[in-house]
Amino acid sequence: MRVLALLALLAAPAFAQDTDLELVLLADASGSITQSELMFQRNAYAAAMTDPTVIAAIQNTAYGSIAVTYVEWATNQGVVVPWMRIDGAETAAAFAAALDGPPRGATGRNAIGSALLFARDLIEQNRIDGWRRVIDFSGDTTGNSYGPPIEMARDEVLESGITINALAIVSERRFDSDTLAARYEARIIGGPGAFVVEAGQGEVFAEAVKRKLILEISGVPTPRIVADLR
Rank of each mutant, 00 (worst) to 15 (best):
69 T>Y: 05
65 S>V: 06
76 N>R: 00
140 D>A: 08
56 A>K: 13
89 A>W: 15
120 R>E: 12
103 P>E: 15
71 V>Y: 06
122 L>V: 06
125 Q>Y: 14
118 F>P: 14
124 E>W: 15
146 Y>Q: 01
75 T>A: 12
107 T>P: 15
121 D>C: 00
74 A>M: 11
67 A>H: 11
145 S>Y: 15
141 T>H: 03
146 Y>M: 07
66 I>E: 05
71 V>E: 03
60 N>K: 09
130 G>L: 07
118 F>N: 09
139 G>Q: 00
96 A>C: 01
107 T>E: 08
153 A>W: 06
64 G>Q: 06
82 P>C: 07
82 P>Y: 11
144 N>Q: 02
114 S>E: 13
150 I>K: 03
77 Q>P: 06
136 D>V: 07
118 F>S: 05
75 T>C: 11
47 A>P: 14
114 S>Q: 07
122 L>N: 00
51 D>T: 09
51 D>W: 11
117 L>D: 12
79 V>S: 02
97 A>V: 01
58 I>L: 10
128 I>W: 12
124 E>H: 15
132 R>N: 05
107 T>Y: 11
88 G>K: 11
87 D>P: 14
97 A>L: 08
65 S>W: 03
116 L>A: 02
49 M>G: 03
127 R>E: 10
143 G>N: 10
113 G>T: 07
59 Q>M: 06
54 V>N: 04
119 A>W: 13
140 D>I: 12
138 S>I: 08
79 V>M: 05
50 T>A: 02
106 A>C: 00
116 L>T: 09
87 D>Y: 14
113 G>K: 06
92 A>D: 14
54 V>E: 15
58 I>Y: 10
105 G>M: 04
45 Y>A: 03
73 W>H: 02
57 A>V: 10
145 S>D: 15
66 I>R: 04
64 G>P: 12
74 A>S: 13
79 V>A: 00
137 F>Q: 09
130 G>N: 07
55 I>E: 06
122 L>W: 09
132 R>G: 04
149 P>C: 08
54 V>W: 00
60 N>L: 11
149 P>A: 04
60 N>M: 03
71 V>K: 13
139 G>E: 13
91 T>C: 01
95 F>L: 00
123 I>W: 08
56 A>Y: 15
48 A>Q: 03
123 I>K: 06
90 E>M: 02
148 P>L: 12
84 M>K: 10
75 T>N: 09
127 R>G: 04
147 G>Y: 08
130 G>T: 00
69 T>S: 04
151 E>L: 15
